[in-house]
Design a protein around this nucleic acid. Sequence first.
DNA 1: CACACGTGGAA
DNA 2: TTTCCAAGTGT
Length: 305
Amino acid sequence: MVSGARTSALDLASLHDEVLRWYAVSSRDLPWREPSCSPWGVLLSEVMSQQTPLARVEPIWREWMARWPTPADLARESPGEVVRAWGRLGYPRRALRLHEAATVIAQRHDGEVPRDQTELRALPGIGDYTAAAVAAFAFGDRSVVVDTNVRRVQARLVTGLAQASPAMTRAEVALAEDLLPDDDEDAATWNVAVMELGALVCTARAPRCEECPVSARCAWVLGGRPAYDGPPRRGQKWHGTDRQVRGIIVQALRESTEPVRREALAPGRDEVQVDRCLAGLVEDGLVEPVGAEHYALPGREEAAG
DNA sequence: CACACGTGGAA
DNA sequence: TTTCCAAGTGT
């Protein structure tokens, strides 16, 4: 229960001590880490940060917190305006789901972000990671937060591999559980500290092992930093894909306050592809047809899924 | 389980 | 220029 076979070779107490000490002096001053930040602010930061570098998140997060300081404020907004304010953070469906989540919070949770992980997990756009992260960072709960940073740190420090496997495994969650400090307060800090270590020191491309507080006990370093030899990651295509065309269309609509003619949405692109993307975007609720050949971001009457 | 889903900065 | 990849989620 306390320390499984996976971590038997580690001195957990001093491992915790060194990482928490490092975090205390090396962590970034992010606005959603301020003690005064509301659970809503934490939730917003987590969703915005999904697959998106924090440097790009911070300015948008500040705008949103000033404009919609509570879930009820966002819920009152039209989904199209929310997608517009999302700007170029990417994956705009996240903005839509945030709007839906805010609506659920306003209607079913009395306007308060739930602190129960199961209830958080039930909100649209909130998966295992985000539910655990909000529970830990907004409410100080003892939860197991496993993101890409944690997976990479664990792969190197404990397993001795250069990278984590492409898909998350049960073993990784179990390992994260084993590594969690017994003290609840330390556990909450540990979660964010390991993430921060992965983001600043134990990075994917060029890890700064000289700056790492635990490199002396890192299985990967001890093993001579062997190269990754697992299955290759599926590289994401971009040029010419539907994803690119969808991005072009939504960007055109974000920049226009009025409905846009279909031909003006993605000039020069294959019409079949544009129609397919448009149908998908309408299906997703990100775009709304206006009349016979115009399109716009969704208004207050939300398009039926 | 594999794949779709945006975007931009760094190597 | 191309490739990698960043606090993942939904199907």
